[in-house]
Design a protein around this nucleic acid. Structure first.
Length: 910
RNA sequence: GGGCGCGUAGCUCAGUUGGUUAGAGUACUUCCUUGACAUGGAAGGGGUCACAGGUUCAAGUCCUGUCGCGCCCACCA
């Protein structure tokens, strides 16, 4: 006995009870079945400071569709959730919080500050997890991990020590990306370049007079320097976008092949403002074509110049404090902010007539990905991972096809990065994160890298101090696929999802690893995907996943990336509140074609809401008509009607299509197939037809049968509403359909004849509705109709008479095999040799109808001609596939028949 | 500078390895409110598939070029 659905679909009411239940339901078997191939996904750990945005919503919906489908298909489907500690972001959040109390982190001290961060994490860190649950994500929540968990941290330390021992981690002074606001080093990936409208300043650097008081002169100028009028007698002109760095210049460089400057190489220059003597050097790094061909060299503040500084043994002068304020090396400009100093220096140069000109100049400048401050190339002592050795197997894994990207084009992006990989700066000058497992002996200056806190140095000293830096968050994230299982199992870890033993954890890891698929956004390829592949191959000696599905970036209507900072985001939580999580999920997936970017506006979600409403009401209608004992599983095959077979066969098609589309990561196709089937086939046609025999038990069986399977097919996309409805259907077997069985096509229901017969019904009903509209006949007006068909189709036609009568309000319908046209009737071709004549005495203007028919005939003749031309083409007949040619021939015959028939009808009008 | 993607209906986009008359959602027009659903039903209008060449019996689909838009990477200071 089925329960009733409330007459109004209320997403909020429906959804709120389900995520708790899913979270409580064991989604995995207690013991992994070694015979069953698992399906594993690890969730891209969202930033612990994060709140759900559309990107997350899309990402999680896709993963949830995959995991739900595979789970229903009987796989051991594990979805490992969690969050990463997001070092810089989280620290920033907490710093902002204590700033409200008028405090800075140094006021609190490291320990106290970290306490505050943990406190914040306890209070707010699970926000995003709750939001993911609210979206319906069926993760194995009891396995939730955090990159700062005790056990996970041990993996991080283990990895650091192993890489260090292997010589793949080193420490050194290099130019790195420095964020003066966050006051930490950043990796190259964390400092994305953005184009800025900058300026290119041309500055005169005076040459030092030679000993005899004369200056060297140049013989002749080259043609290329026409636009720069330079007095080479007294000055060399350099071009720079960052004039403030000139305070740290220790040379001027020119290209050794540059004829303009050849005679000046080795000469001395007086650095303006600082009045320091610097040399002119020659280096191939200098581009002759850019600016004046002469470049100022600031080895401590530019990566290129750093290179030159090393090769030419120049002095490295750091002119900046870590916060971007100039230091004592900056002379008069000390204590000025870097941009303030720029202005001041320009003013001073102008005053001294040393500024030749300023050009507008667009150039790309690195920005901190957490606070968007312009980063400073900064010379400092940092820790690095040597990447080349790690990248080699990672390149191979993708090239060999062991790991596949969807879409394929991302492979190139990955390989390009991997093949040009640079060493990874992993130390961060912040407090929140994994402290480097490095100690320095205060006595003998030895460096100790250790898994546990060392007690004393080899020299016997106990004065050991741990490195103050912490590791890049991604240095922990890249271990996610195996560290979340407890790797490296050094000791029994406290995992809160059961009475785990180390052995069992090891078993689990070897069962679930490598994982099946990774779903993420394109910008994460370098940060995470590439590094996970390297880590997996290095530490597990196996790839971490087989497939990488890259989905699109969610953008607003103007094509901008949706982000909080731009203020253009549509909040998924608002959409959930307004339309429901099912509508959100449905619409997101329907829009998101394989990997293309997604443009969003609120209206898009109405489609999802409307569909949910349709599902609700159709289900309600079916349920309110069910007799006791109807289960949807006891269809009597012998009494199936044409329409029953047709809908069951269409259901088979839908099952096949949806399953295949999900297998090939074409989620929009999947969702459109099930939408099309449910709404436009099942509801629009079958349910309408079924109303005529709604009292029959078998009709009810079919209705329920199709409904149940439709709900299963829909459940990965719209889990809440489908589970709610299923739970109220008779004969349900599971607590939740999240663990029900995925539907499979039933061959018994495949029947071509029935499908053809139904197509005739559609064509007839369609033609008649059309006529009604043309003739302004209300649906209530009964029609008289004759169907002319060849002998062989007569039986099929007769089998659907009652359907046509019912659907098009036809009072009389004769099926004949007569070929001649009916006078005073409107004829429609409804199949290639089946005509439908609508008898209409006096209801139609013969002249008008004649004209209409003439036009129709003319159109068809045109079509026929072009077909004839095509078929006369020998090449076509020879080369085209047989089926195509046959179809064209059939079509020609069809056209000829129709034309003849229409002419007859036309002439029958008196 | 290099790489990638996109130009299809008013709008947002689908369109499988080339093969009948190019589809959907939305918007628009007309009609339909007696019990599943107006968050609905029926019918309709609307496309030179950016442009120009080429390959082919056949091109929205493949190739080349042009124009427009977008993204990513890069040490032209």
């Amino acid at each position: 006995m089925s329960q009733e659905l409330p007459s109004q679909y209320n997403p909020k009411e429906v959804e709120e009870k389900w995520f708790d239940l899913w979270a409580k339901t064991p989604l995995l078997h207690a013991e992994a079945d070694p015979k069953k191939k698992p399906f594993t996904i690890v969730i891209p750990p969202p930033n612990v400071t994060g709140i759900l945005h559309m990107g997350h919503a899309l990402n999680n919906t896709i993963q949830d569709i995959l995991i739900r489908t595979r789970r229903m298909q009987g796989k051991e489907a594990l979805w490992m959730p969690g969050t990463d500690h997001a070092g810089i972001a989280t620290q920033n959040v907490v710093e902002r919080k204590i700033a409200k109390e008028g405090l800075k982190r140094h006021d609190l001290g490291r320990d106290e500050f970290l306490k505050r961060v943990w406190q914040w994490k306890e209070e707010h860190g699970s926000t995003i997890i709750h939001q993911l649950k609210r979206m319906g994500a069926t993760c194995d929540w009891q396995r939730e991990r955090f990159t700062m968990d005790e056990g996970y941290s041990k993996s991080v330390v283990e990895v650091f020590v192993r890489l260090y021992d292997k010589g793949l981690i080193y420490r050194g002074d290099y130019i790195i990306n420095w964020c003066p606001r966050c006051q930490t080093a950043l990796s190259d990936e964390e400092a994305p370049h953005r184009d800025l409208d900058g300026k290119l300043y041309y500055i005169k650097y005076p040459l030092k007079k030679t000993e005899d008081g004369r200056q060297k002169t140049e013989d002749g100028k080259t043609k290329k320097q026409k636009n720069i009028k330079t007095d080479y007698t007294d000055y060399i002109v350099v071009a720079t976008t960052r004039p403030e760095t000139m305070l740290g210049d220790t040379a001027v460089a020119v290209n050794p092949t540059d004829k303009r400057y050849k005679h000046l190489i080795g000469e001395t220059i007086i650095l303006p403002l600082m009045e320091r003597e610097i040399k002119i050097i020659a280096d191939h790094l200098v581009d002759k074509k850019f600016g004046t061909g002469a470049v100022k060299v600031t080895p401590a503040h530019d990566p290129n110049d750093y290179q030159m500084g090393k090769t030419h043994n120049l002095e490295f002068i750091n002119i900046m404090h870590p916060d971007g304020v100039l230091n004592e090396n900056a002379g008069d400009y000390a204590q000025m902010d870097r941009f303030e100093a720029r202005e001041a220096i320009i003013e001073d140069l102008k005053e001294r007539k040393l500024l030749l000109k300023i050009d507008e100049h667009k150039h790309a400048v690195g920005h901190c990905y957490r606070c968007h401050t312009i980063v400073e190339p900064y010379l400092s002592k940092q820790w690095f991972v040597k990447m080349k050795p790690l990248s080699k197997p990672a390149i191979k894994a993708v090239k060999s096809g062991e790991i596949k990207f969807y879409l394929k084009r991302w492979t190139k992006v990955y390989l390009n990065w991997m093949e040009n990989i640079k060493d990874w700066c992993i130390s961060r000058q912040i407090w929140w994160g994994h402290r480097l497992p490095v100690w320095y002996c205060q006595d003998c200056k030895a460096v100790l890298v250790s898994r546990v806190t060392p007690e004393k140095c080899a020299c016997g000293s106990t004065k050991l101090e741990q490195d103050l830096d912490v590791l890049d968050t991604w240095f922990s994230s890249w271990l996610w696929p195996f560290a979340t299982f407890g790797w490296p199992f050094l000791e029994k870890q406290s995992m809160d999802h059961g009475p785990w033993t180390m052995d069992k954890q090891k078993q689990e890891l070897s069962y679930f690893y490598p994982t099946s698929v990774l779903v993420t956004a394109p910008e994460i390829i370098f940060f995470w995907v590439a590094r996970m592949i390297m880590a997996g191959l290095e530490f597990m000696e196996e790839i971490p996943f087989h497939d990488v599905y890259i989905h699109g970036t969610v953008r607003d209507e103007e094509g901008k990336k949706m982000s909080k900072s731009l203020g253009n985001s549509i909040d998924p939580l608002d959409i959930i509140a307004q339309y429901g999580a099912d509508a959100l999920r449905f619409s997101l997936i329907a829009i998101a074609a394989s990997g293309s970017d997604i443009f969003l506006s609120t209206e898009r979600f109405q489609q999802g809401r409307n569909f949910a409403n349709k599902i609700w009401n159709a289900s309600r209608f079916i349920m309110m008509n069910l007799k006791d004992g109807v289960t949807g599983e006891n269809i009597d095959q012998k009494t199936l009607k044409v329409q029953d077979i047709w809908v069951l066969s269409a259901l088979n098609d839908a099952i096949k299509k949806v399953t295949k589309s999900i297998d090939t990561f074409k989620f929009n196709e999947a969702v459109n197939s099930v939408y099309e089937f449910f709404w436009h086939k099942f509801c629009d046609w079958y349910v309408e037809i079924a109303k005529d025999s709604i009292g029959d038990k078998n009709t009810q069986e079919v209705l329920l049968h199709v409904l149940k399977r439709s709900l299963l097919l829909l459940s990965p996309f719209m889990p809440f509403i489908t589970d709610e409805i299923s739970s109220k259907l008779p004969g349900k077997t599971n607590e939740t359909i999240a663990i029900a069985n995925w539907p499979v096509p039933n061959k018994a229901f495949e029947n071509k004849a029935a499908v053809c017969a139904m197509e005739l019904v559609f064509a007839c009903v369609f033609a008649l509705r059309n006529r009604r509209a043309e003739l302004n006949l209300l649906p209530q007006v009964p029609l008289h109709v004759r169907l002319s068909t060849p002998e062989k189709k007569k039986k099929a036609a007769e089998s659907v008479v009652s359907l046509i009568k019912h659907l098009a309000n036809v009072a009389e319908l004769d099926v004949t095999t007569l070929k001649e046209a009916v006078p005073n009737a409107l004829s429609s071709l409804v199949d290639k040799d089946v005509h439908l004549d609508l008898l209409l005495e006096g209801l139609v203007d013969p002249e008008k109808e004649k004209a209409r028919l003439d036009k129709q005939v003319a159109d068809l003749v045109k079509q026929l001609r072009s077909k004839e031309v095509m078929l006369a083409n020998k090449e076509f007949v020879k080369k085209a596939p047989q089926a195509v040619v046959e179809k064209e021939k059939e079509r020609t015959v069809e056209l000829k028949n129709t034309i003849g028939r229409l002419k007859e009808v036309r002439n029958a009008f008196k």
